[in-house]
Design a protein around this nucleic acid. Structure first.
Length: 588
RNA sequence: GGGGGCGUAGUGUAGUGGUUUAACAUGCCGGCCUGUCAAGCCGGAGAUCGCGGGUUCGAAUCCCGUCGCUCCCGCCA
């Protein structure tokens, strides 16, 4: 080893020891006589002093060192003189007096500051990712990520899970997201697909009798990017045999609670995680992934305004729609301009308009529609909304899906403005009882709302024949701070049920056999009832790190255009490579 | 596929309703300096203002296009 100690680990207890350090120059301060170097390695930073009188050779070398030079320093740990300690540094009580300094490698001036986390253009960070990763923020995040994955492995291994790898080169599945395809050299014109998740394979591992499987699995989806979506991402994929929904949820909750409490200091607001049905989540929050860090729940006033003189309200209710609202505490003084902004947001989400009512400090009402209502109707609304003086009430009248979308959008926006979406707080919940199918109007058929193999709730089995849209699936989503962070289900293990689902989604037997024949055949050889869940590791670590996007917890992420700016991927390839793969590029 | 934001010395920003040696900080280079830790002081170099075109006597600034990064909608079983 080129070093005997780590920079960040040196303390007063080391005083007097002769040690060797190796690391990068964080900052340097040359006083002409004395020179100081802050030497950094992964463990932290320690001050190195070079004194021309004590060690002229070392001093001469040290003076040449610049930011990010790689040095080896041999020296003695010394307690700093009185009054010269630095209480802001963990190593601030001591310093290392250099006896010998060697430049292991010089460094060009970095394109941005490594020694602090000051903001830098994202493209530049990604181009020089190896330098960005030297910075404290990324070191901290990736080490946190390591601890999270380590915790998961230990937790599951202790509970009898087996970690098994599944192929990256697999088979295309036209359902779901767009696949990344890999051409086959050996089979001209044929392609592998990168897995969107190991879904089928983990179920086959249950058929294979492993009973408890997990994998830290890379997944690939060729869809447009978001702050919480990358073309390749990592899931904790796990599957269990002989379990019911409660078993999977209980295990996952114990694991997730343990990870959160073990790996970060953030407040876990709700423990145990609240359980909401899909219908309840939409009713209370307008979303199937509610941000539970704050209240501001949706309130239905349809019955109060059904007979009112405000036509937009009464006609909407008469036509089968609804009128619901939210209460924005302390926003009663919002100007017309601010309310117009909220109205624009509402219209983007599909509302025709936004009805509002501000309750003044003295209880007086300022409103876009109150003049159409009777006094007792206004009073009833205020009472139902539990409005206090100074509050702003916002109402949307429309069909339920529109009301949900609009009020969800307003709730999140107001939560943001009121500072209720604090990254230091984690609020998780489970959403269960999802509808098994969604009606696809274009294709005139049912689409699976989760995936093809999700089992219906046992009591809803008859509905598959009579009212498929009302059938609920044994599905569960794990939601953290308003982001879907994991989802899973109990799977179908009975052939009749699976065939019924294929029929409902318009997958005829021949096509099903071609795409999923291996699954169907496997299921005929004694399939245990099974189910699982797949929490997103990137999203989870993002929350634990308090980061605003998952690029900050991925070592080498891609841009929104799915490019790697450091390596320059994707890139053109040699004609010979294409020829070998039987690929022709067609000009658009 | 659509909408918004950003792009000016190495870096972070100012300037942007037309005419400036394009400013400030930091970094970089040189000098001075034996207790700094965001070191200090003095000096210096460093920008055809993302790129292309247009309008104009004159464009970082206005217009059109394009590229890159980013946020959002669609999409993401």
């Amino acid at each position: 080893m080129l070093k005997t100690h780590n920079c960040g680990g040196l303390r007063a207890a080391h005083v007097g020891q002769e040690i060797t350090l190796a690391g990068w120059v964080n900052r340097w301060r040359d006083h002409g006589g004395l020179a100081f170097l802050d030497l950094r390695d992964r463990s932290g930073i320690v001050q190195v002093v070079s004194d021309p009188d004590a060690a002229p050779g070392a001093h001469a070398v040290a003076r040449q060192a610049r930011s990010e030079f790689v040095l080896q320093v041999r020296g003695v740990v010394r307690r700093r003189p009185d009054g010269l300690t630095n209480p802001d540094m963990p190593t601030g009580e001591i310093e290392v007096v250099a006896r010998q300094v060697e430049i292991l490698n010089p460094a060009k001036t970095p394109p941005f500051y490594v020694y602090d986390d000051s903001p830098v253009d994202e493209a530049l960070r990604l181009k020089y990712r190896y330098l960005d990763l030297r910075r404290q923020r990324m070191q901290r995040n990736l080490i946190l990520r390591h601890r999270v994955v380590k915790y998961i492995r230990d937790f599951l291994a202790a509970r009898d899970f087996v970690e098994i790898e599944t192929p990256i080169l697999f088979k295309t599945t036209p359902e779901g997201a767009r696949d990344y395809l890999v051409p086959s050299r050996v089979h001209p014109g044929e392609f592998y697909a990168l897995p969107q998740s190991p879904q089928q394979l983990k179920q086959l591992l249950m058929v294979a009798g492993f009973e408890r499987y997990f994998q830290i699995a890379r997944c690939f989806r060729d869809e447009d990017q978001r702050g919480d979506r990358q073309p390749e991402f990592t899931q904790l994929d796990l599957e269990m045999s002989f379990v019911e929904r409660e078993d999977v949820i209980a295990l996952a909750e114990a694991l997730l609670t343990g990870v959160i409490e073990d790996c970060c200091e953030r407040e876990l607001l709700l423990k145990p995680f609240p359980r909401l049905t899909y219908a309840e989540a939409l009713r209370r929050f307008g979303s199937d992934r509610p941000d539970m860090r704050f209240g501001m729940e949706l309130v239905d006033i349809s019955d109060l305004v059904a007979e009112s003189g405000f036509g937009i309200f009464s006609k909407t209710v008469e036509g089968g729609g609804q009128v619901r609202g939210i209460r924005a505490p302390g926003c009663g003084s919002y100007s017309r301009r601010q309310i117009d902004e909220l109205t624009e947001l509402a219209q983007r989400e599909g509302a025709k308009g936004l009805a509002w009512m501000a309750v003044g400090e003295g209880g007086e009402v300022r409103s876009s529609f109150a003049k159409f209502l009777a006094g007792e109707e206004i009073a009833a609304i205020i009472e139902r909304m539990e409005a206090e003086p100074g509050d702003l009430l916002l109402f949307v009248a429309a069909a339920a899906p529109v009301v949900n979308a609009v009020l969800n959008g307003l709730r999140l926006e107001l939560g943001e403005r009121l500072g209720l979406r604090d990254a230091n707080v984690l609020a998780c919940c489970w959403v269960v009882d999802f509808p098994l199918f969604e009606w696809n109007e274009e294709e005139r058929r049912w689409d699976p709302s989760h995936h093809l193999f999700t089992a219906p709730m046992p009591e809803d089995l008859p509905l598959l024949d009579t009212d498929p849209g009302a059938a609920r699936g044994q599905q569960y989503d794990f939601v953290c701070n308003g982001v879907e962070t994991g989802g899973g289900s109990i799977r179908i293990h009975q052939r009749e049920v699976q065939e019924k689902v294929f029929e409902l989604i318009g997958l005829d037997a021949a096509v099903a056999r071609e795409r999923f024949g291996h699954m169907l055949e496997a299921f005929e050889y004694g399939t245990p009832p099974h189910g699982g869940i797949a929490p997103g590791i990137d999203r989870l670590v993002m929350f634990l790190a308090g980061e605003p996007n998952i690029r900050e917890v991925i070592a080498f992420p891609k841009t929104q255009q799915a490019a790697d700016l450091m390596a320059g991927a994707p890139s053109p390839v040699e004609p010979e490579q294409l020829e070998e793969l039987h690929i022709q590029i067609v000009d658009e």
